[in-house]
Structures are given as C-alpha cells and as structure tokens.
Design a protein around this nucleic acid. Structure first.
Lengths: 162, 162
DNA sequence: TTATTATGGATACCACAGGTCCGTATTGAT
DNA sequence: ATCAATACGGACCTGTGGTATCCATAATAA
C-alpha cells in the first residue's frame, strides 16, 4: 500500500515544468538533473504523461517538454491515475464464497435468499467509500496549488525577517 | 497502489469471528472454508492479528480464534495497519535534490536561504494530508459497523417483501 | 547533413506478495 | 500416559511488478 517512486518523479517533474512555465521545451537532461533521476527512466514517465495529455513533447534540437494545460487544471489525482493505473484500490477476492451468504442468514427468513442479492461485498463498499474520499481530496490539489503554497511560504518567511 | 489480498482475508475473517461471537474458538478449518482460502496462508494472517492484539488464539483440541476485543473497537484502520504495515503511503525520494532549493528561489531574496529551511517537501505534505483524511475515514468504520449494515440491509429487504 | 532530442522495445535485477510444507508446542480427550 | 487436534513459526518456492539501463529509430533545428 504505497505509491510508487514513479508517481513521486512525475509530480516533481510537473512541478519543475510549471515553475519554468515562461520558457518552454524543458529537456530531459535538465529535468533529470533537477530531480536526481536517470534520463532513461524519467523519459519513460514523461512518455506516459504525454500519452495522457498532461504534457506536450517535441523531439529534435531544442526540443523538450511543457505542460499541455494550465497548472491549475492538473490535479494530483490525474497524475496518480496515469502512473499507478485506474484499477480500484481494493477488490473483494472471494465475493462468491460462503462468507457473504452466511452474513445474510442472520435476521432473514430462510426463503429470503435475495437478501444481499446484489452480491455486493460490504467490505468492498467501505473501502470503495474510502477511495472516493481520497480521490476527492486529490482532485482538490493541483500543480498550481503547490506552487502557490511554495511562494506563500517564502513571503511569510520574508515578513518574519522584516 | 493496491491493498493486498491479505488485508481482504483479514477483514473477512474478523467479520466471520464477529458474526459467530456467541461461540468462541473458531478453528482455522472453518475460517478457511468460509473464505475459500488455504489454511496455511490464512493462519499466517491470523498470527499477525494475534500479535497485534486483534484476536486471541488457543491451541489444542477445540482451540481456535476469537475477537480479543468488542467488534466496535476494531477499526478498518487497525486491521489495515497490522497487515500492510505502518509506513506512510508516500515518501519524497529526492528531498535533497536541486528541486526544492529551486522552488525557493522565486519570490525570495537571494539571502533568503532559509526559505523552506525545514526542507519539507510540499508534494509530500499534500500526500500526507491525503493519508490523514483516508485514515480518519478508516477509523470511523469498524467490524461492528459492517455487521450492523448487513442486518440493516436484510431487514429492509424483508420489509419490501411484506 | 549533422547534432540533438524524444520514443519505444528489449532486457535485467530484485524485492515482495502470495502460497505451500513441515516440525514443534500446546491442549483436550481417551 | 498417550493420542489427536490445533495453532505457531521457519524455510522455501514462484510469479509479478517496480526500478532501471541500453539501444535503435524517428523527428527536428541549425
């Protein structure tokens, strides 16, 4: 239950692109140097981001990457789902087992076989709810919001000194 | 970014123990049959739950497992942390890279080197917040609450039929 | 044409989830 | 005292996926 390093790299790479928004076409060399990650590996990650329309890429001399849309439209959820995939975090692996029928026995008449007729696992339902909460939070945070937070911190520090 | 099958098994096993609360010492045979999981593998999981004080176990004839505390005191978070471990979901792997110093440059005077002095990664901060939200949700759901939900469903179904 | 840069395929390594087997210890029953 | 049932823990196996590298190819600017 951990996010992969690739997600970490992707978020930091996008942050770098957002921070250098005026320039465009940031090369993989600069990116990998800034993050301390190998070019070859980072380029795989950038390719994924490109295929999903998060960044644009141009090959050739002076080529590189830039954000494909405004930084405030790139949410953490977007990035995470591109890298980690869109499968749900939890799947009940034995919903066809005796477990779920047994839960239905109690408090139900014997002929109440369609109790839990949908065969929906209640554990899965709770975990699904957790995932939805998580997604909502991750939708509310964007590349832009992190950059805003960064400059806010800086100005606060300056105020303290004066 | 997925919960392991072990977590799934653990939650369902606890649900089975809670459901059979009047009896005690449910054997691994009954548990594995109910869940459709091998005895050997499930017993590993039960051992973990025992070491963390979630269940009690007695060996010997007529031995088995029972909940070590009331079902309403066993939260999803408890179970997940026992099985998945307590490491955080996200760790910034390059907080000592150029990335974080560069973010501080903008909006700060050159001598403002202690801007971001704590070296705290803002990406990690967002992800940490996400994890806290997730944990709060998982703390609010217990083995008991799932059992309550199950019987509520059943009585609703019965009402519909009458 | 040439140097630069991104792309995608092939490959390798390794940690870990998932799972099995077996010997040991403990307990109740005979 | 013995035996069967049961949980415990270690050793082991296997496949998969994350991490990472290298190279051949395509595209682009100078």
């Amino acid at each position: 239950m951990q996010f992969s390093k690739s997600t970490d790299y992707a978020l930091h790479a996008l942050l770098h692109l957002g921070h250098s928004e005026r320039r465009h076409n940031i090369g993989i060399k600069e990116l990998s140097a800034a993050l301390g990650v190998s070019e070859s590996y980072l380029s795989k990650i950038m390719s994924k981001l490109r295929q999903d329309g998060i960044v644009r890429a141009v090959p050739g001399v002076n080529g590189g990457y830039e954000l494909a849309k405004p930084a405030e439209q790139i949410t953490f959820l977007d990035v995470i789902q591109v890298i980690e995939g869109r499968q749900q975090m939890f799947e009940c692996s034995n919903s066809n087992s005796r477990q779920h029928q047994q839960l239905a026995e109690e408090g139900a008449a014997p002929q109440d076989q369609e109790c839990h007729g949908k065969r929906e696992c209640l554990v899965e339902k709770v975990m699904g709810g957790a995932e939805q909460h998580l997604h909502q939070y991750l939708r509310e945070h964007t590349i832009q919001s992190v950059m805003d937070e960064a400059s806010k911190r800086c100005s606060q520090n300056r105020d303290k000194k004066e």
